[in-house]
């Protein structure tokens, strides 16, 4: 009976708080990451030479540094220059910029896979380069990049646990605190792990269906 009371009074509220915090970390990071990724990916293919190399340097650095190092740079490192982020802000900035760099790789690959003739065709119909990019090329490229970007979103769910390292208390943090308090490491980390598994499985299921929902009928059927 005491086990049940422990679960109900201690574990459940902490886990709900933790999941809520994790979701508050994941969703904005996913959205910002995708936006950054699409902009950077487009710049790397169609951008001006200077912008292109800036985007390339950004991607090399943010894909090359471990995410933990990036989070530490944002949270502990920038304090040197008088820039103080809250743990939450630092984590969201870190996640967004890191996953943006990865997304840009998928977007870039997808953009390069769209035949050059489409751009030329659009321009010959009187589209400006920007118009052609936004209404012809990108809608196709984003669809083609979906499987890759979906993987990146799954990674983001798992990497959100690193926010604990910059003292943003989300699911892992709540589990760690409660586990140290009651010395029940095995149970609490199994519960936290199960919740992450659940989140990842739901996200995988949704992402598999998004491809189908976004598919243009009769044009490039999605792989099943």
């Amino acid at each position: 009976m005491s086990e049940f009371l422990f679960l109900r009074n201690e574990v459940a509220p902490a886990m709900i708080r933790g999941v809520w915090m994790s979701i508050k970390l994941i969703v904005p990071s996913a959205v910002f990451g995708l936006v950054i990724g699409i902009i950077t990916g487009t710049l790397r293919v169609y951008g001006h030479a200077v912008l292109k190399s800036v985007a390339n340097i950004y991607v090399t650095l943010f894909r090359g540094f471990p995410l933990l190092v990036q989070l530490y740079l944002w949270y502990f490192g920038l304090a040197r220059f008088g820039i103080y982020f809250s743990p939450y802000t630092a984590a969201v900035i870190g996640f967004s910029l890191c996953s943006g760099a990865y997304h840009s790789e998928y977007i870039r690959g997808a953009l390069l896979s769209i035949k050059e003739g489409q751009m030329l065709g659009a321009q010959s119909l009187g589209f400006s380069k920007t118009q052609a990019l936004f209404s012809i090329i990108l809608p196709q490229a984003v669809r083609r990049a979906l499987p890759g970007c979906g993987n990146e979103l799954i990674y983001l769910i798992k990497y959100s646990s690193l926010a604990y390292m910059v003292t943003c208390i989300e699911l892992t943090g709540e589990a760690k605190i409660l586990a140290s308090l009651y010395f029940k490491y095995m149970e609490l980390f199994l519960i936290a792990g199960a919740i992450y598994l659940f989140l990842v499985s739901i996200a995988t299921w949704i992402l598999n269906h998004v491809e189908g929902w976004l598919a243009v009928p009769g044009f490039e059927p999605p792989r099943t």
Binding site: K158, F189, L190, A192, G193, L197, V200
Partner: peptide, 16 residues
């Protein structure tokens, strides 16, 4: 593939 590395590290080191 579904459980984060940090959770697995804690689960194995402190739990298991």
């Amino acid at each position: 593939r579904g459980v984060p590395l940090l959770v697995l590290l804690f689960l194995f080191y402190f739990g298991l």
